[in-house]
């Protein structure tokens, strides 16, 4: 009796899985049969809390991210997924773009550093840091570090990282102070700016001779960074967005250190190479489901 039950259970399971697989295969066959080269649009997004995701949603003007988009836990996973799936679309920081995928133009404008600087490429966001004027005066390391960021050497780190610098050619060279500063600096905020800040701190420590143990970097989001800089728990806050007026009202001084672009990427086999912001919005709102509707 027991054995018969088990056998029935196994057969039922096998049938269920078979039916599900066949059912999906059938559906998909129909969609592919509509005669497009890339077929069904596959949406890829980043996880909730990611700075890139927040910036993408804000810049494109989405109300919210659809539940049907596959969530990737890192830029690398987005790149691998989009690079392998014909109908895929995703977004990454411009600095992470490589030739396994194709970046589409937005409104006919290519995603390049020049186009971000002259403000024709719309999907860009500033990387900001903010501090209190009093903290800057009392903390000699922070003061020197801020000078380093604005210097030619600092801006070079930013460009090497993959961000866009508006002042790389005009910035003055960094001058090492006569006596090395001794204060400790606590930095906190955006997870998007964090990795860049680590590179900046590393380069600064090499250039100035300050021990890297003087710096602590906490990555807990733009909002937390601004709050922390306001209440004094951080000496320097990082934000991957513009600093808001109510944050400035708390006595913060904001400084833009770099610009970062968001590249919209598709598979290399996809024939589409230009999208308008409106189309992009509709793609992520699932008003389009097939690339053929976009003329690919």
């Amino acid at each position: 009796m027991k054995k018969i039950l088990m056998a029935i259970l196994c057969v039922a399971l096998a049938c269920g899985i078979g039916a599900a697989a066949v059912g999906c295969g059938g559906n998909n066959g129909g969609e592919n049969g509509e005669g497009s080269s890339a077929g069904q649009i596959l949406l890829y997004t980043r996880e909730d809390g990611s700075g890139t995701r927040d910036a993408f949603i804000e810049l494109v003007g989405l109300e919210e991210m659809t539940d049907n988009a596959a969530v990737c836990n890192g830029t690398n996973v987005v790149l691998t997924s989009v690079g392998g799936a014909k109908g895929a679309i995703g977004y990454i920081s411009l600095g992470s773009l490589n030739d396994t995928v194709k970046a589409v133009k937005i409104g006919g404008v290519e995603a390049t550093a020049e186009n971000i600087i002259n403000d024709t490429y719309k999907l860009s966001r500033p990387f900001n840091v903010a501090y209190k004027a009093a903290t800057l005066e009392s903390n000699d390391t922070l003061k020197d570090f801020m000078q380093f960021i604005s210097s030619k050497e600092g801006q070079k780190v930013i460009v090497d990282y993959g961000c866009v610098s508006e002042t790389e050619d005009t910035a003055p060279a960094y001058v090492k102070p006569a006596t090395a500063p001794t204060s400790e600096v606590k930095i906190g905020g955006s997870t998007s700016v964090g990795p860049l800040m680590e590179k900046l701190v590393e380069a600064y420590c090499k250039a100035s001779g300050v021990a890297s143990t003087k710096f602590t970097i906490t990555q807990n989001g733009s909002g937390a960074g601004m709050t922390g800089a306001g209440d004094g728990s951080f000496d320097l806050g990082m934000a991957s967005r513009a600093v808001k007026d109510d944050e400035l009202a708390k006595g913060l001084t904001a400084k833009e250190i770099a610009l970062d672009g968001i590249a919209i990427i598709v598979n290399k086999e996809n024939t589409i190479d230009n999208l308008t912001l409106e189309q992009l919005k509709k793609i992520y709102n699932e008003e389009y489901s097939n690339w053929s509707e976009l003329g690919a």
Binding site: I17, A20, A21, G23, C24, E47, D48, G49, D67, N68, A69, A70, V71, C72, N73
Partner: peptide
């Protein structure tokens, strides 16, 4: 796939409890 909706077939993505914790 990490989608937070009920799957319709075994070809749909899902988010598991562990994935939810590590993602966010």
């Amino acid at each position: 796939g990490n989608q937070t909706r009920f799957p319709d077939s075994i070809l749909d993505g899902v988010r598991t409890l562990t994935a939810n914790v590590v993602l966010e």
